[in-house]
């Protein structure tokens, strides 16, 4: 490419800048982090900014291969949830028993038993306050699921290790259990993909994730407190987990920002108008924000694309991806390639998946533009990898995504690669196995 064209359509990046943060760097909170009162600081679950709250989790940090394998499990769960189906957990009324996979009944022939499970947890955490007086809890934030839950004393069956003190309902003056006859109890089914149970008169939820992690406990309500301005949401419905097991990374539970009536977004609709925004920290050693309400972004140049809603996967945020470009060249991809299975955005998925034909086109164009660099072995699901160990700077084609409403985003260099180490730098996209996924 000519110099001017190169500047427009290629990133020229120092290889060292692609490397992920390490603990040695410590935590450097982003100066752009939103400081508004209705804003929560977003931290990576395993990064140095989490060390003050999740120190005990360091030894359980996953490897890169484990991160990618867990990501595949999450995406498998999303694929199954988006497909039309009818499944139910036959009973979660006994909270002393885990909702094991073999208890998920199939009603649609040929579907895998895991199709009733919801997606695995994401990588980013925020701290909220719960109860009166409020107790601070670090929860995984997730736009791809709906149900908010935290571990609760007395942990009748099991609680995994978390850094924050476990929430104790008996110490909150505003805590209330929800009865089985409440309409909110029936809403649990769509929020958790599992039919709620009943213990005495109390509604019992059960939620199982794609990696077999789960939480079972009481549906409850209490006061939720958000941000430095201590915005309060009275009567916030959540799960008070008495039996919790899985890879939640030392967090106290999960906050669901999906589209279901029980999600935080829906429950806070009156206060924040069904608008929220986030920025994921650009390095694990930095911080981002999760902000409720309008005006939460630090950037003035927001490009919008319509949100789509479909009958399948009603909890998810579907968007209208129409095309891809590499190095300024639009790829030849039929528009129906993207509409066949649909496209959704999810804060908890690490690697963007593309339909097979779209991924093939992206891979071919990217390989062509990167042909001067030696290839490297595949890393789990990532099959387009390069050895950049002999370079101090590299020229990388910009990747653009075109959305409905004439919106386009061009990914920064950090959004193009997943870097295991400098000798194995991989294109951070993967192909779906089926065109209808």
């Amino acid at each position: 490419p000519q110099p001017l064209e190169q500047e427009h359509h290629f990133h020229i990046v120092e290889v060292s800048s692609l490397l992920p943060a390490t603990d040695v760097e410590g935590c450097n909170p982003s100066p752009k982090g939103n400081k508004k009162g209705n804003s929560l600081e977003v931290r990576h679950k395993h990064g140095p900014c989490s060390s003050s709250t999740l120190e005990s989790d360091k030894e359980s940090r996953p490897s890169h291969v484990e991160i990618l394998e867990n990501d595949e499990k999450r995406v498998d769960s999303i694929r199954e949830r988006v497909k039309p189906k009818s499944v139910e957990v036959d009973s979660v009324t006994d909270h002393k028993k885990a909702p094991k996979k073999d208890r998920v009944k199939q009603k649609a022939v040929g579907l895998p038993v895991k199709s009733g499970s919801t997606i695995g947890s994401g990588n980013f955490i925020v701290t909220i306050g719960l109860g009166t007086p409020k107790k601070d809890l670090s929860l995984i934030f997730d736009t791809g699921s709906d149900f908010t839950w935290t571990q609760c004393e007395p942990c009748k069956r099991s609680c995994y290790k978390q850094k924050d003190p476990v929430f104790n309902p008996s110490e909150s003056s505003t805590y209330t259990n929800i009865t089985c006859t409440s309409t909110l109890c029936s809403e649990v089914r769509s929020a958790t993909s599992a039919k709620p149970g009943c213990a005495g008169s109390t509604c019992v939820y059960g939620i199982q994730y794609g990696d077999s992690s789960f939480s079972v406990g009481f549906l409850a309500k209490d006061t939720l407190t958000l941000g430095s301005s201590y915005d309060t949401i009275p009567n916030f419905y959540f799960g008070c987990g008495e039996n919790n097991q899985g890879l939640f990374g030392g967090s106290a539970g999960l906050i669901g920002l999906g589209r279901n009536q029980l999600s935080v977004m829906s429950q806070c609709a009156t206060k924040y108008g069904q608008v929220f925004s986030y920025c994921l920290p650009s390095k694990a050693s930095s911080t981002g924000h999760l902000t409720f309400g309008k005006g939460g972004t630090s950037s003035k140049s927001i490009t919008y694309t319509p949100l789509l809603s479909g009958s399948a996967g009603a909890s998810f945020y579907f968007i209208d991806l129409q095309g891809l470009s590499v190095g300024g060249q639009k790829l030849s991809i039929q528009p129906t390639v993207f509409t066949q299975g649909g496209v959704l955005i999810d804060s908890g998925t690490v690697i963007t998946r593309l339909p097979p034909d779209a991924y093939s086109a992206l891979q071919a164009a990217f390989n062509k533009a990167m042909s001067k660099y030696p290839k490297a072995p595949a890393l789990s699901i990532l099959d387009t990898c390069f050895d950049l160990s002999k370079y101090t700077t590299v020229t990388v084609p910009k990747i653009g995504l075109q959305f409905g409403g004439k919106a386009e985003i061009v990914l920064p260099a950090a959004g193009i690669f997943y870097v295991k180490d400098i000798s194995q730098v991989c294109l951070a996209f993967a192909g779906n196995g089926d065109a209808s996924d």
């Binding site: 694990a284 319509p306 950090a414």
Partner: peptide, 30 residues
């Protein structure tokens, strides 16, 4: 050990305007 997160969304502000039925991206978010 360095951990990477959800790389495509890094450095963007992502705005979910559910009431307005639109989703926004803003560069240089954090």
């Amino acid at each position: 050990v360095g951990i990477l997160g959800n790389v495509q969304q890094l450095t963007f502000d992502v705005v979910y305007d559910v009431a307005g039925s639109k989703l926004g991206f803003g560069p240089g978010g954090c």
